[in-house]
Design a protein around this nucleic acid. Sequence first.
DNA 1: CTACCTGCAAAACGTTTGCAAGACG
DNA 2: CGTCTTGCAAACGTTTTGCAGGTAG
Lengths: 145, 145
Amino acid sequence: MEKRNECTRRILEEHNIMHTVQREEILSLFITEPKHYKADEVFKLLRCKGIGIATVYRTLEMFRKCGVIKEISDGKNRFFEMKKHEEKSVYVHFKCSKCGEIHDYDDVNALNEFAAAVESTEKKMDVSIRDMNILINGLCSKCKE
Amino acid sequence: MEKRNECTRRILEEHNIMHTVQREEILSLFITEPKHYKADEVFKLLRCKGIGIATVYRTLEMFRKCGVIKEISDGKNRFFEMKKHEEKSVYVHFKCSKCGEIHDYDDVNALNEFAAAVESTEKKMDVSIRDMNILINGLCSKCKE
DNA sequence: CTACCTGCAAAACGTTTGCAAGACG
DNA sequence: CGTCTTGCAAACGTTTTGCAGGTAG
């Protein structure tokens, strides 16, 4: 089985990214605790290891450009999370208008439904789709009662 | 037929918003040239009429809270556009990864397809959906050649 | 050894706020 | 007339940048 640092090193190599301690730490965070992070959350978690805020921003931007992570946004905040590597990936996030929390949504069947809509959109718009981000607004199960 | 200033006044009244010259100008912009605007674009267009940047931000935020306009975001930039007034509105925007332009997408059939996906999502997630924003990334018809 | 990366601090950017003056009804 | 809104400038939080020193290969 692949060890943690082997995994991060492999990903960096695959994307032709020079290896440094800081990049490994940041990438490791996204892999070991897979969720969406704001830049300053990453900074707060890794500051104790001597990683500066500028490095966090530079690294996130670089990972994003290389397709290692992706960014999502709810208008107020930017988040980053690991990128899927399928064709025409569909990302669904739900934001509760009341409590403000953002939840990921990974139900395979529903994703397929959206993917079908993507197909027909692609034809009608005469475009080439890479990925699709869906942000649903509403009330979460806790808040809707 | 309703005149332009009658239309803006009516919308303001319907939302119980006190009438001012500035609010009418900003709303009028969204109605006469219906597309998505960044806050500073609105400012640049209306600065000549003596409208300050603070008023632009305050008015946009207020219109948003009242449901007159809505906000979309691509992670880097925030845009505002007129809000639909149907139940469970679906907004589809396409962003070209190459030229960076954002296009609206209004095909009714495709929107219905997405709406269907919304329905089933609502049940599976046990949430109450208000609206849904879809940002598609890919290459536009010009850039994909 | 060379090129690239880092942390720091300063700058830049988008957005919000306090305040005195002005507009609305 | 009192209340709400405005423009200005200053403050704010986030993101970017210049630079001197450090690290990877």
